[in-house]
Simulated assay, not measured.
Amino acid sequence: MESSFRIAVIPGDGIGAEVIAAGQQVLEALAKRSGSYGFEWIPYPWGSAYYAEHGVMMDAKGLELLQNSDAIYFGAVGWENVPDHTSLWGLRLNITQNFDQWANIRPVKFLPGIDSPLRTDTSGLDWIVVRENSEGEYAGLGGRNLSGRGPGNEVAVQTALFTETGCERIIRFAFDLALTRAVPKVSSVTKSNAQQYGMVLWDEVFRRVAADYPGVETESVLVDAMSARFVLAPQSLSVVVASNLFADILSDLGSALAGSLGLAASANLNPEQRFPSMFEPVHGSAPDIAGRGISNPVGAIASAALMLDHLGLPGEAGKLEAAIEAVAASGIKTRDVGGTAGTQEVTDAVIAALGQ
Rank of each mutant, 00 (worst) to 15 (best):
A290V: 04
G148T: 04
A264E: 00
P271C: 08
G259Q: 11
D336H: 13
G318M: 11
P276K: 12
A17M: 05
W46E: 02
A286E: 01
N296A: 12
P184D: 12
E53H: 11
L253I: 13
G339L: 04
T120V: 04
T180K: 14
P112H: 07
L177G: 04
I114L: 10
G312H: 11
G152E: 00
G55P: 08
E18T: 02
F246I: 02
A256G: 14
W102A: 09
M57W: 07
A304V: 00
D252F: 08
D348F: 03
L245E: 03
L27K: 07
E135P: 03
S34A: 14
L27W: 03
V189W: 08
I294S: 08
A329S: 13
A194W: 06
V337T: 12
I95A: 12
V221R: 13
S303H: 12
T165S: 11
F110V: 02
F175L: 08
M307Q: 09
Q101D: 01
Q97Y: 10
T86I: 15
S243T: 14
M226Y: 13
V186Y: 08
P112M: 08
F279L: 01
L88A: 03
L93A: 11
I324T: 05
N81E: 11
G14W: 09
R144D: 00
L263I: 05
G90V: 02
R335Y: 07
A290I: 04
L257R: 12
W102R: 14
K32T: 13
G16S: 04
I10Q: 08
Y138F: 15
A341C: 10
G355W: 10
A22N: 12
V186P: 03
A329K: 14
L245R: 05
I301E: 01
V241W: 08
F206R: 04
Y44Q: 09
L354P: 00
S266E: 00
G62T: 09
E132S: 08
I170F: 02
S238Y: 03
G16H: 11
G90S: 10
Y44D: 04
N68D: 15
S123G: 10
T347F: 03
N270Q: 14
E316P: 06
A31V: 05
K333M: 07
A326P: 03
S4G: 04
V282C: 09
A52Y: 09
M1L: 11
P151L: 14
N244W: 06
G291S: 08
M199F: 05
K319L: 15
A156E: 08
A267G: 14
S36H: 14
A8Y: 06
A17W: 07
Q195I: 15
S187G: 01
V129E: 01
A258I: 04
E80S: 15
R207F: 01
V157K: 10
G259T: 03
T86N: 09
T347P: 01
M58T: 00
N94L: 10
F175N: 07
